[in-house]
Amino acid sequence: MREIDALTITNTVKKLCIEANCHLSCDIKNCISACAENEPWPTAKDILNQIIENYEIADRENLPICQDTGVACVFLEIGQDVHINGNLNDAINEGVRQGYSGGFLRKSVVRDPLDRVNTGDNTPAMIYYEIVSGDKIKITVAPKGFGSENMSAIAMLRPSDGIAGVKDFILKTVREAGPNPCPPIVVGVGIGGTFDKAAYLAKKALLRPIDLPNATPFYADLEKELLEKINALGIGPQGFGGQTTALAVNIEHFPTHIAGLPVAVNINCHVTRHKTEVI
């Protein structure tokens, strides 16, 4: 049994919160650059170039790429041969607290959805645990902005709706979101499982680098087809028109019940942030 101190978790989460918010990952940067190059609509091209200038400033000056530094979504894959000394939940939240204050990040969490008083330190984090084999812990911090989160949707389709129904629902969700989630967007899709599992898969799909297609060829093809269909909608960067509405569609899937076909769409903006470290 390998022992890991809770303090190590706190320090890692703190670091990842700051890095994720100030430095966009290469897969997103490369994709935005390529889209700017290929975009035929002048207004759209101009916006994409400003988006590039923005993340370059953020990189250089260690500034948050976006003022919505999000709710901290923290994903942990914990090896079953690890023992953590100390309280794991507290350690993660302490990391978020230190990261958001030390990194000059915005505190965007309210203590109760109805009384809406800000907690002042961006805690609690949204924590997702998975137990895996081995003696390591993989921690991913994915700050999630709510402009795009609010445009997300879930549908409990009928099995008879099939693949056509799935495609229609995804396209409808993106079309209705229009300019609101800050296009160009990344579309996370979860298909299968249960009501909550589909939503979890959609969020998890956003963690996968956008230059890495689904490992199953069928779903990789579906991702490609949906991306083309979304970019044919004409919404464009910021909704002002253009070819570049989405940077990628990432799909995760899971077995489901004979009676069901859950589909969840979790939309992310062009500031799709996640940083990972393995302890």
Binding site: N54, I57, L63, C66, Q67, D68, G147, P179
Partner: peptide, 13 residues
């Protein structure tokens, strides 16, 4: 008016 969403670092200048 619309300002570019997700460009907070640039706009702050």
């Amino acid at each position: 008016f619309g300002a570019i969403g997700g460009c907070g670092a640039l706009l702050s200048k």
